[in-house]
Amino acid sequence: MSSLRLCCQITYKDKIRDINVLRANKGLKPVRKANTAGSIYARWYLVYQDLLIIIECQVALNKKGPGLPAGMRDLLLYHLANALSWFTISDALENEVAECARKFTPSLSHQEALSYCSSVINRAKKTQIEGKEHRYRYRRETIYRELEDL
């Protein structure tokens, strides 16, 4: 494993965690080289932060219980996982998705959450293995259109 990958991951509670995700959750910039400013990785990092704000607002508005309402939990978790896949190492992605599901969609089981995001996780792993890009890309308008009811 390269020294760059070693500095970008930490072990937390016997799980591989990505330092950039932890920094994003605290509102801090990711640990990246300066030349990644304006890159696709920086773009998805910003999408991730925006999704966290949307999720926090929806959780606060949900009067039926903790977490996201049933009608939007899988969609938001999917988009959150896709954004994570762009700046999280693929080995840590499954654990990060599970952690997000635990926090924001406690009504979903661990397996349900991972099944909703399985295509995102598989594409991230395939990208890492083959070195060819397989992760989902879509425009700002696509996310807006899918989340406009919120």
Rank of each mutant, 00 (worst) to 15 (best):
T36E: 01
T36D: 02
T36V: 01
A37W: 07
A37N: 03
G38R: 02
G38Q: 06
G38H: 08
G38P: 01
G38S: 02
S39E: 01
S39C: 03
I40P: 10
I40A: 11
I40D: 14
Y41D: 04
Y41G: 09
A42Q: 07
A42P: 00
A42R: 13
A42Y: 08
W44E: 15
W44S: 06
W44A: 09
W44Y: 14
Y45F: 14
Y45N: 08
Y45A: 03
L46G: 09
V47H: 14
Y48S: 05
Y48F: 15
Y48W: 11
Q49V: 12
Q49Y: 09
D50L: 10
D50W: 13
D50V: 02
D50H: 12
L51E: 04
L52N: 08
I53G: 03
I53M: 08
I53A: 10
I54K: 15
I54H: 12
I54S: 14
I54W: 08
E56N: 15
E56Q: 13
Q58H: 04
Q58V: 05
V59N: 04
V59I: 03
V59E: 14
A60E: 07
A60M: 10
A60D: 06
A60K: 14
L61N: 07
L61Q: 09
L61F: 05
L61Y: 07
L61V: 00
N62Q: 05
N62D: 04
N62G: 02
K63Y: 04
K64F: 00
G65S: 01
P66G: 00
P66T: 02
P66L: 04
P66D: 02
G67Y: 07
G67F: 08
G67R: 12
L68K: 02
L68I: 00
P69K: 10
P69F: 07
A70I: 03
A70V: 04
A70E: 05
M72P: 00
R73W: 10
L75I: 04
L75Y: 04
L75F: 06
L75E: 08
L75W: 08
L76E: 09
L76S: 10
L76H: 11
L77F: 07
L77D: 01
L77Y: 09
Y78T: 02
H79M: 12
H79K: 13
H79E: 14
H79T: 01
H79Y: 13
H79F: 06
L80K: 15
A81G: 05
N82D: 15
N82L: 09
A83Y: 12
A83W: 13
A83E: 11
A83N: 08
L84R: 00
S85Y: 10
S85N: 09
W86H: 15
F87P: 11
F87H: 13
F87C: 09
I89Q: 07
I89M: 08
S90F: 13
S90T: 06
S90M: 02
S90Y: 13
S90A: 14
D91L: 12
A92L: 03
A92W: 02
L93Q: 03
L93A: 03
N95A: 10
E96A: 07
E96L: 08
E96I: 03
V97T: 03
A98Q: 13
A98P: 15
A98N: 13
A98W: 08
E99V: 04
C100H: 14
C100Y: 11
A101K: 10
R102F: 10
K103R: 12
K103P: 00
K103Y: 06
F104R: 05
F104P: 00
T105A: 15
T105K: 03
T105V: 03
T105G: 02
T105E: 06
P106N: 01
S107P: 01
S107H: 09
L108A: 04
